[in-house]
């Protein structure tokens, strides 16, 4: 049944990155890019991160900037409370994401 199915993981990853960026649109451009970079750093598997070069035409400006941040500056510090995790001996936060 898979013969008719066309996988396009790369297209999907671009879509995901753009979607993340779009949902940070209430922030200004730099903050949205940093938040997008932070989100991708914390939740994406290495092969997913590596699959996006960052200069794809379909990538939104904010998403492209996010990949540039990851390439040039490495993982940003937490930009939202969603990416602040418990320390080893801490039990306060929780998430299911």
């Amino acid at each position: 049944m898979s013969d008719t199915y066309v996988s396009d993981t790369h297209r999907r990853l671009i879509y995901m990155a753009n979607q993340i960026a779009r949902n940070f649109c209430a922030l200004d451009h730099d903050a949205a890019a940093a938040a997008t970079a932070d989100h991708i750093a914390q939740f994406w598997d290495p092969r997913m991160k590596a699959a996006v070069a960052g200069d794809e035409a379909d990538l939104s400006d904010v998403a492209a900037r996010a990949f540039a941040i990851l390439r040039e500056q490495g993982e940003p510090a937490p930009q939202t409370r969603a990416t602040v995790f418990n320390d080893a001996d801490e039990g306060g936060r929780s998430d299911a994401g």
């Binding site: 409370r81 969603a82 306060g92 936060r93 929780s94 998430d95 994401g97």
Partner: peptide, 11 residues
């Protein structure tokens, strides 16, 4: 998880 952690600190 994502939403409540961001707003309340725990999900």
């Amino acid at each position: 998880g994502y939403g409540l952690k961001t707003t309340f600190g725990t999900s």
